[in-house]
Amino acid sequence: MFNLSDAKPNLWKEVFESGELLHCFNCGSCISGCPASEAGEPLLIRNLARKVILGLEEELEEDDSPWACVTCSRCEEMCPMDVKPFELALAIRRWQCRIDDTRIPPVLPEFFGRGYTQSVEQKELRKSLGLDALPSLGTVPGLLEKFQAMLREVEIIKNNAYMFGGAA
């Protein structure tokens, strides 16, 4: 049972300021066919929509299920009310990252450091396949620095500079 007297009625504006969210009538079309609805902690998007609309801040903060999303966007196609359930899942992830830095995916500093989620150059393997060097970020002189200078201006990096080599 939730005590709605503790709820934060304007939570939806903080999380996902989309008037469309309020049209959700909990039909469950977003769950039907969703692979992650079968996850260990099932992703049940309509429940997330309820939590946001009702303003159940603490429950939303602790909910890991948005991170199980496969990102297939089937729910966006199926939603009859144009609530944009996949955008909602991403928006909840962003809100969680804003209020709790331990939610920030560990791959983000890696991305900031090299421009990719992993090492992409594979010089020897490319040579064996008859491929030229990958035209990656590192091959354009000075571009990695510009890339990082740009990213230092976005909130998540500004506010968590310690993760990004003291970025600010």
């Binding site: 999303c69 962003r94 990252c97 995916p105 035209p135 990656s136 976005v154 998540i156 990096i157």
Partner: peptide, 25 residues
Amino acid sequence: VDLEGYVCCPAFGTFPSCDEDGYLA
């Protein structure tokens, strides 16, 4: 043709999950 200096798309599990400005930039 090559897109010199391209970066990660960005993958949905990276900036789109933490910062919308970063995603779109």
